[in-house]
């Protein structure tokens, strides 16, 4: 019909590649929006419901503060809470660093020498299975410096995932590649550097993501133990302190800060892992089909 004549017809043009283009809404593909909007909607609904319950029943803030009050105290108490958060983060970062260095070193020693593995692996497991809450008070008794005690506690929980994942990774090197290295007369160090360590990378990064969250938990748990003993300045100590004073909104505010920190740590290591592996590892490579 004449009305159709002016429109570009759907003629297949061999020179132009055919792309399935998705309509974009505000710069994002339309299918991406539900993933963003749905959790936000649920979050807002829950917070509104919480606020409503608190207001309708007239619940006093020392029993259950509404989210608006929690938000307010997060802003008001920011300069009390933020330095404490930094104390906790510092302990966590230090513990994680020591766990990475120690875990990777020990994993390398394990692969280089069966004797080292046989001697030390059982104790690594013992460290892992003993609940940190149970050891923390003891460590606080025997270690004079509180921050060192905290560091040890956070390190204990962060250390094992790094060690076990890296060990698994170092042993997962392709056997044919190991043969190839042997064929070309590679030394143990060369095998380690050019083959085992790169093979272990995805495993190590997986362990790092777990250890990142765990080191925060370890630091907080240790601070609780230290806090009950009457000393400390980290975020967990603030929670304890606020609890004694029945300052429940501040407890919630501190809790939110800890959770957000945990999320940031997780996202950070997810990003690091993606950047390190995006060129070659299946987990980070975009599927094309």
């Amino acid at each position: 019909m004449s009305a159709d004549a002016g429109k570009p017809s759907a003629v297949y043009d061999a020179d132009k590649p055919v792309f399935k283009t998705e309509a974009k809404v505000l710069g994002l593909p339309a299918s991406a929006w539900p993933r963003i909007l749905l959790p936000i909607t649920i979050g807002i609904a829950t917070l509104s419901g919480w606020e409503a319950v608190v207001r309708i029943n007239d619940i006093p803030p020392y029993i259950l503060p509404g989210p608006i009050l929690v938000g307010k105290s997060l802003i008001q108490d920011w300069w009390t809470l933020f330095p404490s958060l930094m104390v906790t983060v510092k302990i966590m970062a230090l513990a994680l660093t020591v766990a990475v260095v120690g875990g990777v070193t020990l994993a390398v020693l394990f692969t280089l020498s069966k004797w080292v593995e046989l001697s030390f692996f059982p104790y690594a497991v013992v460290l892992q299975v003993t609940p940190i809450v149970a050891i923390a008070p003891l460590i606080l008794i025997y270690v004079d410096e509180t921050w060192v005690a905290l560091l040890i506690c956070a390190w204990i929980v962060a250390f094992f995932p790094i060690l076990s994942n890296t060990t698994l990774g170092l042993n997962s090197a392709d056997h044919n590649l190991l043969n190839l290295f042997q064929l070309y007369g590679a030394s143990r160090v060369q095998v380690l550097w050019h083959l085992r360590l790169p093979s272990a990378m995805p495993y190590f990064l997986g362990g790092l993501r777990i250890a990142g969250g765990l080191s925060l938990i370890g630091a907080v748990v240790a601070e609780f133990a230290a806090g009950t003993a009457g000393s400390g300045s980290g975020l967990a100590y603030r929670i304890l302190e606020a609890g004694y004073r029945l300052n429940i909104p501040r407890m919630f505010a501190a809790l939110i800060m800890i959770s957000l920190t945990g999320i940031v740590i997780f996202l950070f290591f997810t990003f690091v892992s993606h950047m390190a592996l995006r060129k070659w590892h299946e987990s980070a490579v975009k599927r094309e089909n």
């Binding site: 044919n176 590649l177 043969n179 190839l180 083959l195 790169p198 070659w280």
Partner: peptide, 9 residues
């Protein structure tokens, strides 16, 4: 080798 046996990284 039977497989290409390349280092993927």
């Amino acid at each position: 080798f039977q497989e290409p046996t390349l280092m993927p990284w």
